[in-house]
């Protein structure tokens, strides 16, 4: 199983990939993760790759091969869509992080076209406003928890309780309740969408 997680530096893709990877190891799978760290990744595009299974090879997912795409940011999901296979599921946060280049007039952020493209190109698309759900849970920073909860519903192969447990193990005590709520909200949202 290959999972692409993409977004903008600081959104929590690295944390999410560790949680999924560690949960998979606890279930007895082999795991490879890969990410690029450094060169002031704040506000820059980030991609984490997670490969789970038995007899794995290298850490990088080939094009058109990922089974899941977790897009933490709308435009970044489109940027990395080439990795998703034809039957792959895309879980995309509709929250936009508009880079300064747009306000400086150097580039554009065509929201509607991006959403249309996602709808045309993926068969199993779920659009989720993870930032809003996180805020509902008590903190707009709990986006990773929402995405993980949503992923838990989409992907039956990784144990849901294990995912939540591994997430909480990496968070300070004071934000655990909020993140548990955020995880549930993400899960319930996808259950509602796929019912």
């Amino acid at each position: 199983m290959d999972i692409i997680m993409c977004g903008v530096g600081g959104q929590g893709t690295v944390l999410t990939s560790r949680v999924v990877g560690e949960a998979a190891i606890k279930q007895g799978y082999e795991v490879r993760t890969s990410e690029i760290i450094g060169m002031a990744q704040r506000e820059g595009p980030v991609v984490s790759q997670v490969r789970i299974g038995t007899k794995l090879h290298g850490p990088l997912i080939p094009d058109i091969s990922a089974d899941y795409l977790l897009g933490f940011e709308l435009a970044e999901a489109v940027r990395n869509l080439d990795k998703l296979n034809g039957k792959g599921r895309a879980l995309v946060n509709t929250h936009m992080v508009v880079p300064p280049t747009v306000y400086l007039g150097i580039s554009n952020y065509p929201e509607e076209q991006l959403i249309d493209y996602l709808k045309e190109q993926t068969s199993g698309l779920i659009l989720i406003n993870a930032n809003e759900l996180a805020a509902q849970a008590g903190s707009s920073k709990a986006v990773s928890a929402v995405m993980l909860g949503a992923f838990a519903t989409l992907c039956p192969d990784i144990d849901e309780t294990m995912l939540l447990k591994e997430l909480l193990a990496r968070l300070p005590e004071r934000v655990q309740e909020i993140n548990t709520r955020a995880f549930r909200l993400g899960k319930e949202f996808v259950e509602g969408e796929t019912r």
Binding site: V8, G9, M39, A40, Q41, R42, E43, G44, P45, I64, A75, E76, V78, R79, L81, D82, G86, V98, P99, P100, T101, V102, I106, S107, N108, Y109, P110, Q113, L114, D116, Y117, E120, Q121
Partner: peptide
């Protein structure tokens, strides 16, 4: 190989100072 249909314009996102 599969040809991926042309994408809409994507915003230019470069690493910048925080």
């Amino acid at each position: 190989t599969r040809q991926v249909p042309a994408k809409p314009e994507l915003p230019l996102r470069r690493p910048i100072l925080c």
